[in-house]
C-alpha cells in the first residue's frame, strides 16, 4: 500500500492485465510504474458469510465457471462468466480488475450494480466502503482514487425463492456485448413479487434499472409482461452507435435481451 501511495501520480496497478497490457501494447497506456498485484495471494479468495459472498479483487474469472456457493447467486455467477471474453482471458483476468476498469460492456459491473454490491477500497490510510451506486462514475471511471486499490467486493446473496436470468448479445462469441440484461425475479401465485433488473453495453456503465423493477412488481409473470417491460427498457436507454451497431439497433436489442433474461428468471423462479 505504501508503494501504491508513493506512485499515486504516475503509477498504475496491474491486476490480470487483460485490458491494461493490451492498451499498453497499443501504446494507448504508457504508465511509468506498474505495481503488480498478482503476487498478493491475500487478494485472491472467495468467502461465504450467511448473507454475503465476499470476493477478493484478484479472484480470476475462471473461479466462477462452477457455482462458488449454493443458491441463486452461485448459479447466476456461473451463468454470467462464460460471456466474459474467452477461456484464456478468463484464466488470467480478475473480478476486481474488471470492476476497476469499468468498461461499459463489463458483465461483472452489471452484476455489481444490479445486486447492490459493496466495494471495499484500501489505501495506506486504511479501508473504506463504497456502494455500487456510488462506485461507478462513468465509462472507465470509478470511485477508486489514485493511491487506492479495490480490495474486495461484497455481494448480497439471493435466497432460494429468486430465479435469475442473464442474456447478452454480441456479433461474435466473446466480443464486447452490444447489449446485456441481468434479471432476478420472485414469483408468487403467478405474479411477480420482487424484481431486479440491470443493463450493460447500452449506457456509460452497467446500471440497475429501478423503473423497470417497479414496472414488473405485481404483474403476471408472462411473455406479454416481459415484452412490455423490454419495450419500456428500450425507451430508457440512450446507447451510442458505432461500427458494431447503430444506437437504434442497440435500443431494439435492449428490448430483446431484457425480455429473454426475464423469461429465464421466471422459469427458474417457478421451477
Amino acid at each position: 500500500m505504501k508503494l501504491i501511495k508513493a506512485n499515486a501520480a504516475d503509477g498504475r496497478v496491474i491486476a490480470g492485465g487483460q485490458s491494461l497490457v493490451a492498451a499498453m501494447n497499443f501504446r494507448l497506456a504508457r504508465p511509468d510504474v506498474l505495481i503488480d498485484l498478482n503476487g498478493v495471494k491475500e487478494l485472491d479468495f472467495i468467502e461465504e458469510t450467511p448473507g454475503e459472498l465476499v470476493i477478493g479483487a484478484m479472484t480470476r474469472h475462471a473461479a466462477f465457471h462452477k457455482p462458488v456457493c449454493d443458491g441463486p447467486l452461485g448459479r447466476l455467477l456461473s451463468k454470467v462468466v462464460p460471456n466474459i471474453a474467452h477461456y484464456p482471458i478468463r484464466n488470467r483476468g480478475t473480478f476486481g480488475g474488471s470492476l476497476c476498469h469499468a468498461d461499459p460492456a463489463s458483465e461483472w459491473c452489471v452484476v455489481a450494480a444490479t445486486l447492490d454490491a459493496t466495494m471495499k477500497i484500501g489505501s495506506a490510510e486504511g479501508d473504506r466502503e463504497v456502494p455500487a451506486a456510488d462506485f461507478f462514475r462513468g465509462s472507465f471511471t470509478t470511485a477508486v482514487e489514485p493511491g487506492e486499490i479495490l480490495v474486495a467486493i461484497r455481494l448480497p446473496k439471493l435466497d432460494a425463492g429468486w430465479g435469475t436470468g442473464f442474456y447478452e448479445y454480441s456479433r461474435r462469441k466473446g466480443d464486447f456485448a452490444l447489449a446485456m440484461a441481468l434479471t432476478a425475479l420472485r414469483v408468487e401465485g403467478g405474479a411477480i413479487s420482487a424484481a431486479r433488473v440491470g443493463l450493460g453495453g447500452v449506457a456509460d456503465h452497467g446500471k440497475r434499472m429501478a423503473d423497470l423493477e417497479a414496472a414488473l412488481v405485481g404483474k403476471p409473470a408472462t411473455a406479454e409482461t416481459f415484452a412490455e417491460v423490454g419495450k419500456l427498457a428500450s425507451t430508457l436507454v440512450s446507447p451510442y452507435g458505432d461500427i458494431h451497431g447503430s444506437a437504434e439497433y442497440r435500443r431494439d436489442l435492449t428490448a430483446t435481451v431484457v425480455a429473454r433474461a426475464l423469461a429465464e428468471a421466471a422459469d427458474e423462479a417457478t421451477a
Binding site: 492485465g17 487483460q18 497490457v21 493490451a22 501494447n25 497499443f26 503488480d36 498478482n38 475462471a62 474467452h86 477461456y87 484464456p88 482471458i89 484464466n91 488470467r92
Partner: peptide
C-alpha cells in the same frame, strides 16, 4: 492484444495469452 491466441502458453497449467503478461511476472 489478446485476440488471436497464437501466443497461448500454459502458466502453472492454465492456458493464457503470453502477449498479455510480462516475463517478470
Amino acid at each position: 492484444h489478446g485476440v488471436c491466441g497464437a501466443c497461448t502458453v500454459l502458466v502453472d497449467g492454465r492456458a493464457v495469452r503470453s502477449c498479455l503478461m510480462f516475463a517478470v511476472q
